[in-house]
């Protein structure tokens, strides 16, 4: 069974600000997802309004929704999420993070799932730019930038061979052919990987998105290559490791800060046994689900009103595979 997680529009939500310590650049996604879950499962009682006692929790079936596509956490509602203006008023950018451990073969399908969810959310027929981030790929500055290394987060995946990235790219090219995406981009490619990639793709990327942090130094060969091949070098501040291992288990688990969709919590480890000993069917019982979670992808979407520079909608979707313990 698939788990479909969503933050809805996070603009203006407290969680969307990066902490001033600059310590965790993946915090925006994790924090806004946590806030989204809390807003759905918490109920305020007169006691906790007064500051005594803990917030009561709604059981997950009351705020999630089971559909053919999977379990929506929280239940999706596209009725009020449409952008306000016409399509050509916006710059819509998607950044899709393929996660380590997910099937590379399924990326074509994953990409379509992600893009379709965003199009539905924004009520738009197409997007301007789709950037993909492959697991384990880090753009390495030649210059010393300890600040950057320290904020990168733990490296949990080795870069995959370029062959599989090129294969994935072919599915993206189809989206462009279909007119659903106007421009394609990749993230964190250094000079060599980019040069290699360019030689072997039908539609070359228009954008390479790199993380500079406070060290404004881009390797000269990369600058030159990008300029020569008309590739825009854009800056991002995302952590490539956007969903560290165990995070989803903690957010959805039954620990003190979890949403109680899954049993157990991150602290009890990745493998766990049923705490309740009751079988779970289709997620419609009130008890948390027992089983394994494998995150597949995360997509970030941003809609900017072009001639005013105002971000009107920004949010995340994530998809995970849930397997029942048997």
């Amino acid at each position: 069974m698939k788990l479909i997680l969503s933050t809805s529009n996070i603009m203006g939500a407290v969680s969307s600000f990066r902490p001033i310590t600059n310590s965790k650049s993946n915090a925006e996604f994790v924090n806004s997802l946590r806030a989204s879950l809390e807003a759905n499962y918490s109920i305020a009682t007169s006691e906790n309004v007064n500051g005594n006692g803990h917030a009561a929790r709604l059981t997950y079936p009351s705020w999630t929704q089971m559909t053919e596509a999977g379990l929506e956490i929280p239940a999706l509602d596209f009725s009020e999420s449409a952008l306000q203006e016409e399509r050509d008023q916006y710059d819509i950018t998607l950044k899709l993070f393929y996660l380590p451990g997910a099937s590379i073969e399924d990326r074509g399908k994953q990409t379509r799932e992600a893009v379709n969810l965003v199009l539905k959310e924004l009520h738009m027929p197409s997007i301007d730019l789709l950037i993909v981030s492959f697991p384990g790929v880090y753009f390495d500055e030649e210059e010393k930038c300890p600040d950057k290394i320290s904020t990168r987060g733990p490296i949990e995946a080795e870069p995959e061979p370029i062959e599989s990235q090129i294969k994935t790219w072919a599915t993206l090219e189809t989206l462009k052919d279909e007119g659903i995406v106007k421009r394609l981009g990749i993230a964190e490619f250094g000079h060599d990987r980019l040069a290699n990639f360019l030689d072997r793709t039908r539609i070359p990327p228009s954008v390479d998105q790199v993380n500079l942090r406070d060290c404004c130094s881009v390797p000269r060969d990369l600058l030159k290559l990008a300029k020569g091949r008309n590739i825009e070098l854009l800056v991002h501040n995302d952590c490539s490791n956007i969903l560290p291992r165990g995070t989803l288990r903690e957010l959805l688990g039954s620990g003190p800060s979890g949403a109680h969709v899954l049993s157990g919590s991150a602290k009890t480890g990745e493998k766990r046994k049923s705490l309740h000993g009751e079988p779970v069917t289709n997620g419609h019982a009130d008890k948390p689900l027992d089983g394994e979670v494998q995150p597949l992808w995360v997509v970030k979407y941003t809609a900017v009103v072009r001639n005013r520079g105002v971000v009107e909608n920004k949010g995340y979707f994530a998809m995970a595979e849930f397997t029942n313990d048997s």
Binding site: T7, S8, N9, I10, G12, A13, V14, F17, S32, A35, S36, E38, A39, N40, S42, I43, A44, T45, S46, E47, V49, A55, A56, L58, S62, W63, T64, Q65, P74, A75, L76, D77, E80
Partner: peptide
């Protein structure tokens, strides 16, 4: 200075309980 806005609360989450402690959404 940050708006006190949280993500939307879905229709499916309404009316979760009853009783004297009228529960309110945590908005």
């Amino acid at each position: 200075v940050l708006p006190k806005r949280t993500p939307r609360i879905n229709g499916t989450a309404s009316n979760p309980a009853s009783g004297t402690n009228t529960p309110l959404p945590s908005r």
